[in-house]
Amino acid sequence: MSRSYKGDVSAEACWSALQSDPQSFLIDVRTSAEWNFVGFPMVPENGQDALFAEWQTYPTMAVDPRFAERVGAAVRAAGGSEGSKLYFLCRSGARSMSSAAAMTAAGFTDCFNVLDGFEGPPDADGHRGQVAGWKAAGLPWRQK
């Protein structure tokens, strides 16, 4: 099965790309509840600010029908374009695949899914953030 976006990258590869290309964007597509209660990723100092856009809106978890329009406008407002590298991040890598595909369908050519997302899969005790993903990789993040 072929994917409908550019590719999948590890959290570490995403961080490296954000460091080396200050015109690339990290787009966190989790819910506002996740940003507020779980935490959110930080980006390299020389890069673009992370963009935060819910793919699905809590609590109904309905997909935002204007997602691509809103994210496209935010990327352009920050000086990006349809050729900018966009890295999509969710909790574990599923919503980010869908959002990367949606942005590719909207004409953005370099959309990537961050494998394992912000928290990754649960460990043997059912806790996230220890096995894989942004937090487990030791990349910078904050909690409000």
Results as ranks from 00 to 15, higher is better:
Pro41Tyr: 06
Cys111His: 09
Ser81Leu: 03
Met42Trp: 02
Ile27Ser: 11
Val131Met: 11
Ala105Leu: 02
Phe52Lys: 08
Trp141Leu: 03
Ser4Ala: 09
Val38Pro: 00
Ala105Tyr: 00
Val131Cys: 08
Val9Pro: 02
Ala68Phe: 08
Met61Thr: 08
Gln56Ala: 15
Gly126Glu: 01
Gly83Lys: 09
Ser99Asn: 09
Lys144Pro: 12
Phe40Leu: 14
Thr57Tyr: 09
Val43Ser: 14
Pro44Asp: 10
Asp110Phe: 02
Phe67His: 11
Tyr5Leu: 09
Glu45Gly: 11
Arg66Lys: 14
Asn36Gln: 13
Asn36Val: 03
Trp55Phe: 13
Cys90Glu: 08
Pro65Ala: 10
Lys144Met: 07
Ala132Leu: 04
Ala101Pro: 07
Ala74Cys: 07
Ser98His: 12
Val43His: 14
Asn36Met: 10
Ala53Arg: 13
Gly93Lys: 02
Met1Asn: 11
Cys90Leu: 06
Met97Gln: 15
Tyr58Gly: 01
Gly7Pro: 13
Ala78Ile: 08
Arg66Ala: 13
Ser99Met: 07
Ala68Ile: 05
Phe67Arg: 11
Leu139Met: 05
Leu89Pro: 04
Gly80Ile: 06
Cys14Pro: 07
Glu82Thr: 13
Phe118Met: 03
Gly126His: 06
Ala77Asn: 11
Arg76Gln: 10
Leu18Ser: 04
Gly117Glu: 01
Ala53Asp: 05
Gly72Lys: 04
Ser84Ala: 07
Asp125Gly: 13
Ser10Ile: 00
Leu89Ser: 05
Leu89Tyr: 03
Ser32His: 10
Ala101Tyr: 06
His127Arg: 15
Lys135Ile: 15
Gly129Arg: 06
Asp125Ser: 15
Glu45Tyr: 05
